[in-house]
Amino acid sequence: MPIDVAQALGGAPRVEEISWSGRDVRLYHLGIGAGVPATDPAELRYTLESRLHVLPSFATVAGGGPPGVIGALSMPGVDVDLAAVLHAGQSLRLHRPVPTDGTATATSRLVAVHDKGKAALLVMRTEVTDGSGPLWTEEAEVYVRGEGGWAGERERGPSTHPEPPCGEPEVTVERAVRPDQALLYRLTGDDNPLHADPEFARAAGFEQPVLHGLCTYGMTLKAAVDTLLAGETDRVRGYRARFVGVVYPGETLRIRMWRGAGQARTVRVEVSTAERGETPVLAAGRIEYA
């Protein structure tokens, strides 16, 4: 079996030093569609160095190293075909606001390998700390088609299908995905050819290159921060979501948001594509804020 579970879970963690600057932050923001309109004060918070705020989802690419998916595939005990791999979900816990410039230590390890029947699900956790202590913890869930069936029910893992929000959303917004959005987002560090090479995308079963799940993830968080949190990026404490469908560059994201009732400081989000009959692409989204 290409995934040696014992080796994958028992291997030493990967420890690396990462660093980033305000320029990296601005590039990430452009990669998720910030800066439209270019002179809008609300957008200048993401694009102008003198006013720069850091959207917390930048943490998923900080340092420019291998993102969660590619990083998980490079761990000991994992030897699989990249064309069989999909990003299934992402979670992020902020211990402090992400600074505009920083140097930190990232410690990554595979913390779970689940047998999903027709596929394996890898869970890779990365903990990032700097001289002042913990900064953030993130987990990437990586779905590997054709690698299941080795353990059965005892290793299926927890269910990741919470009940959808009830009632009409408080806010619905649409965000256009540029035709070259995936090419721009790749500059943040994710060079998976699935997002740029038409032949590779067809071999993986897609009509054309698809948008990174983490790009949809970032665009969704930005929409919620801008509409429900008054653009105050530092209020975000946690964010998780599942990727349940692909987005093609040039499409439109329809983002629905439900704020938690009473004192619950949460926002539930669900995202679909407007052009393909409301095809779901991001589900079980949950943002926690202060």
Rank of each mutant, 00 (worst) to 15 (best):
P134E: 10
A203C: 01
C166N: 10
E207H: 12
F200T: 04
G189N: 03
V173Y: 11
D234W: 10
E174Q: 15
T216K: 02
M219R: 07
L194S: 08
G149Q: 07
R175F: 07
A224R: 05
E174C: 14
G149A: 02
D234Q: 13
P158K: 04
H212Y: 01
E207K: 13
A176N: 08
L183D: 12
P164W: 09
P164T: 04
F200W: 09
W150M: 00
C215A: 10
P162W: 10
T233E: 14
T216E: 03
E163V: 08
T137R: 08
R237F: 00
Q181E: 12
D234P: 05
D226G: 05
G205D: 03
E153M: 00
R186V: 00
N192P: 03
L211A: 11
R237A: 11
V210S: 08
P162N: 04
P165M: 09
L228V: 10
E232T: 05
G167F: 12
A230E: 15
A140K: 04
V171I: 15
A223W: 00
F200H: 12
R145S: 05
L183K: 14
T172E: 15
G167C: 10
V225H: 08
R237M: 10
Y185V: 08
L187F: 08
G152P: 01
P179T: 12
L228W: 07
P169Y: 12
G218Y: 04
L183M: 14
A196C: 08
P198T: 02
G231M: 06
D226W: 01
P164E: 06
E147C: 03
